[in-house]
Amino acid sequence: MSNSTEDVLEPEPVYALIFGSILVLGLPLNAVSLWILLRRHSLKSPNTIFMVNLAISDLLLIISLPMRVYYYATGTWPLSNMACLWATILFRSNIRSGSMFITFISVDRLLAVVYPLRLRHLRTSSIAWKGAALVWLTVVMVNIPESVEFVRQSNKLNVPSCFKSADLESALRSAVVYFQLALVVTMLAVNIACTVMVFWTLYRHVSDSVRVRTKVKVMLIFAMNLVMFTICFLPVSVSVPTTKTSKMQPLVCLATLNCCLDPLLYYFSFDAFWKKKEDLDLTRGQ
């Protein structure tokens, strides 16, 4: 290993504290959420299937956070280049899979609220599992070019400073990052369209017998999805192709925050109102 000044960088305790806080908060929230989803909700529900996979995606990112905490707390990277690759890939995979699973959840809610009978045949567990498999397959296929490029250049990486390494930045910067940007923008557009259609339906076509509290909770689901896209996913995806790795830590912190916000999505989606008879017109086919 080279003895250049990049071997030991200045610690950045603020980022270590932020990532540590996300780790401490996100790990139990997502672990408990996953347990509740598997224990108390049927995996025959498309909504549950997508949320279980979203929780798994968040947990995969969370297990990589101790490496970031140590790096920013000490300014050193004692692990291998491959460990750095995995930490980076898990972060990017969370953005890619998270954006797709959240979009599937929005589309599922759209079908339940706007087309409860006409498109009921699309809301089956079989289709949901196929959708989840497609998401993971896409993530793996997108990760392969980045991983191969990193391995190809690994012999040139003399200083594994990881999250602020210019060599790592060069190795991982490829056409894939533009795919990620296009993916997030497309998923955001789909979520916006779903939100507009659901809000319009609730405002114009849902009977007055549906409680105001029910409408508010439905709207909160879509509002939270848009917040996660505009605050967590979009800024970092826009910046990756043009911004140096060393300047992206604040955006990475924002993106990682989605792990703590997703459990709120589970709560609002599976509150008792989804299963009450008087709200059947909102959940037909669940």
Rank of each mutant, 00 (worst) to 15 (best):
I89R: 00
P28A: 01
T74D: 00
A128E: 04
M51V: 11
A189V: 14
L220T: 09
T283M: 06
F104S: 09
L9H: 01
L282P: 06
L59S: 10
Y203V: 10
I89W: 00
S4E: 08
L59P: 02
T124W: 02
E278P: 08
K276V: 15
A175F: 15
H121Q: 10
V198C: 07
A255I: 06
G26M: 00
V190P: 07
V69Q: 03
L122S: 02
H121P: 05
L265W: 02
M248V: 15
Y266T: 04
A133K: 08
I89C: 00
A193F: 07
F199L: 08
S154G: 10
T256H: 02
W77D: 01
F163K: 13
P78T: 06
P13T: 13
S64W: 07
Y266P: 02
L43D: 00
R40K: 12
M224W: 06
A87F: 06
S2R: 10
E146C: 15
A73L: 14
L25H: 02
W200H: 12
S57C: 05
Q286W: 11
L34D: 01
Y71K: 10
G26T: 04
I36K: 06
S125Y: 00
A223V: 14
S209Y: 09
V140I: 14
V176Q: 03
V114R: 03
C194P: 13
Y70A: 12
S239Q: 03
F91T: 08
V216F: 14
V218S: 02
A133C: 06
S93K: 04
V8K: 13
S4Y: 02
L79F: 07
G26I: 07
C194M: 08
E10T: 15
